[in-house]
Every structure is written in structure tokens, then in C-alpha cells.
Design a protein around this nucleic acid. Structure first.
Ligand SMILES: NC(=O)c1ccc[n+]([C@@H]2O[C@H](COP(=O)([O-])OP(=O)(O)OC[C@H]3O[C@@H](n4cnc5c(N)ncnc54)[C@H](O)[C@@H]3O)[C@@H](O)[C@H]2O)c1
Ligand SMILES: NC(=O)c1ccc[n+]([C@@H]2O[C@H](COP(=O)([O-])OP(=O)(O)OC[C@H]3O[C@@H](n4cnc5c(N)ncnc54)[C@H](O)[C@@H]3O)[C@@H](O)[C@H]2O)c1
Lengths: 209, 209
DNA sequence: ATAACGTTGTGATAAAATTCACGAGAATAT
DNA sequence: ATATTCTCGTGAATTTTATCACAACGTTAT
């Protein structure tokens, strides 16, 4: 079987998001590669190749059956159990994220939040309970949480990261604008909003060339 | 001169962010390609290649001079004038973003916010004034704003996008989980937080392989 | 019947991105 | 002085990624 590269995984995730979104406001049961391409920003040949990699097949007559394609991507992408996520930092951004994730996502849920500020602990927001940071290690182990979202000031990000890793966390989505030092087997995705916006600004000026 | 591809632009932006961050808490004046590689996640050969593309040169003895390298990247990436940004939607996410951008970024500023909710207009947050959406077109033209951040519910995103484009906006950072339809010369960057987190979850499970 | 059409799946090809690897040269050690 | 040790800049090689292009095949129109 052909290898599924990092890039292909990223696109499969996008394809699925596009499929789920469009199946909400349309009642088509099938989609052609060129339609999914348009929605996702890929080329139609690439869509077909990526889907081929999954071992999934469409029909030349009707294209891909949306529901089973979504399932097929899910079988490849999703964890066996429902994903339980921790979030660290219940500031402006953290609260917005908890609200958004737990409203939108069916496959995963932010189950625990941690903060140092006593006013932010022992609350419940969208099904997510908040705790003091000193309880973090035990709660993460208790819930068997594998992934975390980091929304605290840069200055504290590395020390909390070290604790997260000690607690058994394997993946971190980091919003703090700092480069975290982690072992090779830990996956960190940095989401630097300013860097992303600089890109928008650049390509806007170049008329998207 | 060799071409600067989209990918290289993205990395240059990251390099600069890393350089600026690390120059805050260290007083080194120079940096080697392998050090910047470590910070940014690229390889050292790639760092050298990318910087080469700028026409900038380091010294084999001391590496790159941080300040002039930052300037050199800026000369390539930055607009001539300070970037003025509009934001649409002052909900949880929108407020967090205004606060963050206007605190952190030196090169750009969110100068105007727009919302439909009367309670959210005619306020000032971190130097950003908020207006009713019906004033959007005129204010954007008045300030000569080229780029916008979209933080409103998906359902309204397309119509507002159409108005943004009519107003002369050339680039959009879109947080709503929907695919916007825009002309080819308009740059849209979609930031789908759930898609990004799905990636984190996947690679965490695969031990970052 | 059968021709025309539009799509998938995929081998072959092209293009893009990345890494390799080494000459040149400055700094430092001996 | 000379050797040693780093690095940068970069041509060449390699690897990865994306596109091309078409046979095979079901559908629809005639
Ligand atoms: N607001 C944004 O849109 C935005 C965007 C990108 C990145 N960021 C970054 O995300 C982080 C949070 O942003 P914010 O706007 O929510 O900031 P904020 O100041 O509103 O919230 C920070 C929260 O973290 C908590 N905290 C501080 N130290 C902690 C620790 N050691 N352990 C646990 N909790 C701790 C604070 O009590 C507070 O509740 C910052 O690093 C910021 O730079 C924010
Ligand atoms: N909260 C998050 O972390 C998060 C993350 C990713 C994406 N998103 C998306 O970003 C958008 C906003 O998220 P939020 O959490 O801030 O939601 P929110 O409901 O808190 O805020 C939405 C804001 O948009 C305003 N609004 C609605 N229609 C408008 C219109 N036509 N013109 C101008 N303003 C309008 C509302 O008055 C409100 O202030 C949503 O599409 C959401 O799915 C949110």
C-alpha cells in the first residue's frame, strides 16, 4: 500500500471537514473529485490520489459517496476512543476555544481546563470542568488524556509543557508565541496567529500570486 | 535571482518571529543557521537556502547578524506602510484577537471592528474602535484597509465576505469553518481550529511519525 | 444498439522542495 | 606559522509532491 504522507493526512482532514460542512446544507449523497477539489482548494487529480491512498473507491458514474467516504477518512484519522482534550489557560482565548470546540466537534471534547487563577477554577463551561494547575498531573492521568491545548502566556509555557509531558501528554496545540522544547516523540503544532496574518498581508499585497 | 516560493515566504515569516522572540531574552547579536533551524523546525541547509534567496549574507565565522537579518526579511515581507486591519465579529474570539494583536504586534494594528450587535459598537478596545456593520464599507475605504479578519458565524460569512471585497479588501483571515467563494485575486487563509487539532491528535497517536 | 459524455484510478511524467556535500574562508588553538 | 575547527553559500543529487493523460466503464441521449 502506498504511504500516506503528512501532507496527505492534512488534506484528508480538510476533505472531511468540507464534506461534513457541505452535507449539512445540501442533500446530495455523492460528490465528484472536482467538486471536492473546489471546496478544499486542492486539484481534482490530487483529491483522487489522496482518496486512492485510503483504499476507498468511488464510481465513475456518481463520484464518491459522501457518507462512506467520511467514514473511510475517519477510520484512518480518528482515534479508537473519543478524544479527550485538556486545555491550559482559561483567558480570553482559552474560553473562546472551549466554547467553540465543545459546541462544534462531535469526535472530540475538551474535558478539563487548568489555570493558576483561583477565580477561574471549579467552574464548568460547555461541559468542561476547570481545575487548579496543581491538580493537572493527576487529572490528566485519571482521564487518560493524550492531547492538550496551551493558551497561557509565553513566559510560563515551557514549564507547563514539561509538566504536560510528565503527565503523559503526547500532542500539544500551542498558541503561545514561543518555541517549546520537547522530546522527539511528542508532537507540537504551533499556531502563531501573527505569523499567519503576516502571510495574509503578504499575499494580499501580491494579489494572491 | 532564484524565485521565492509560497513555502519559503511562510518560513521566512517564522524565522523572523523566532529571531524577534529570542532576541528579547538573549543578547546575542548573531545566530548560526543550525540554531535558527532548531528554533524554527527547519533544517539548517534550508535556513541557509531560504536566506540566500533574500540576497542576504552571513559570515562563516559568526553566522547571521540578527538585527540586519530581521530587517532584510522585513524588507521582503512587510508592506511599505504600517498594516491596518479590520476585524468583523467581536464575539469571544474576536475580542481575544484584538487584544492579542494590538498588544503584541509592532508592524500592524487592528484599527476597526464591525459587529451587528448594538451593544458591541461604539466602543474602544486596545486602540481599536468598533462600528456597526452597516458602516463597514465606508470606514474600510476611509482608512484604506487592505486586509480583514473574519470571526462571525459561518452562516453570515459569505455575505460579509462579498461586502468586504466590494470595499476593496484583498486578503482575509477566515476563522469561520466554511469555504468562502472569492475571486482569484483575493487571498483567503482559512484557519479551521478543529482541523488543526485533528492533526495534533493524529500525530500524537502516531508518536509524531 | 450504439455513440457521446464524463468520471474514476493510476502509471508515467514533471515540477518542486529538500538534502547532500564540499570549497572557501575566518577564527582559534597549538 | 600551521593545523584544526567551524561555518556559509551553493551546485548537484535526491526525494517528495503534484500533474498529466488515458484506458476502462457506467450513464444518458439518440
Ligand atoms: N488572544 C488571542 O487571540 C491569542 C492569539 C494567539 C495567541 N495567544 C496567546 O495565547 C496565550 C493566552 O492568550 P489570552 O489572550 O487568553 O491571555 P489571557 O491573559 O487572557 O489568559 C491567560 C490565562 O492563563 C492563565 N495562566 C497564566 N499562567 C498560567 C500557568 N502557569 N498555568 C495555568 N494557567 C496560567 C491566566 O490565569 C489566564 O487565565 C498567550 O500566550 C497569548 O500570547 C492569544
Ligand atoms: N471561539 C473560537 O475559538 C473559534 C475558533 C475557531 C473558529 N471560530 C469561529 O469564529 C466565529 C466566531 O466565533 P466566536 O466564538 O467569537 O462566536 P460569538 O458568537 O461569540 O461571536 C460572533 C460575533 O459575530 C457577530 N456577528 C454575527 N453576525 C454578524 C454579521 N453579519 N456581521 C457582523 N458581526 C456579526 C455577533 O454579534 C457576535 O458578536 C464563528 O464562526 C466560530 O465558528 C471560533
Amino acid at each position: 500500500m502506498s504511504k500516506i504522507s503528512k501532507k496527505i493526512v492534512e488534506r484528508l482532514i480538510i476533505y472531511r471537514r468540507c464534506l461534513i460542512r457541505s452535507s449539512v446544507n445540501s442533500n446530495n449523497t455523492h460528490i465528484f473529485s472536482h467538486q471536492l477539489a473546489k471546496k478544499s482548494g486542492a486539484s481534482s487529480a490530487q483529491v483522487r490520489r489522496d482518496i486512492m491512498g485510503l483504499g476507498y473507491s468511488g464510481s465513475p458514474a456518481y463520484g464518491y459517496e459522501i457518507k462512506s467516504l467520511v467514514d473511510s477518512i475517519g477510520k484512518f484519522i480518528d482515534p479508537v476512543k473519543r478524544e479527550k482534550i485538556a486545555i491550559i489557560g482559561l483567558g480570553n482565548l482559552g474560553k473562546a476555544i472551549v466554547d467553540y470546540f465543545n459546541k462544534q466537534s462531535l469526535e472530540m471534547e475538551i474535558v478539563a481546563a487548568f489555570d493558576t487563577n483561583p477565580e477561574k477554577v471549579n467552574r464548568v463551561l460547555m461541559g468542561c470542568k476547570s481545575y487548579h494547575i496543581k491538580e493537572m498531573k493527576s487529572i490528566i492521568k485519571e482521564y487518560d488524556i493524550q492531547t492538550a491545548i496551551l493558551c497561557i502566556p509565553s513566559i510560563n509555557a515551557q514549564e507547563v509543557t514539561d509538566e504536560l509531558i510528565e503527565s503523559g501528554i503526547k500532542g500539544i496545540l500551542n498558541y503561545a508565541p514561543i518555541n517549546l522544547n520537547v522530546p522527539l516523540n511528542i508532537y507540537v503544532e504551533n499556531l502563531d496567529m501573527i505569523a499567519i496574518f503576516e502571510k495574509v498581508s503578504y499575499f494580499a499585497r501580491k494579489n494572491n500570486k
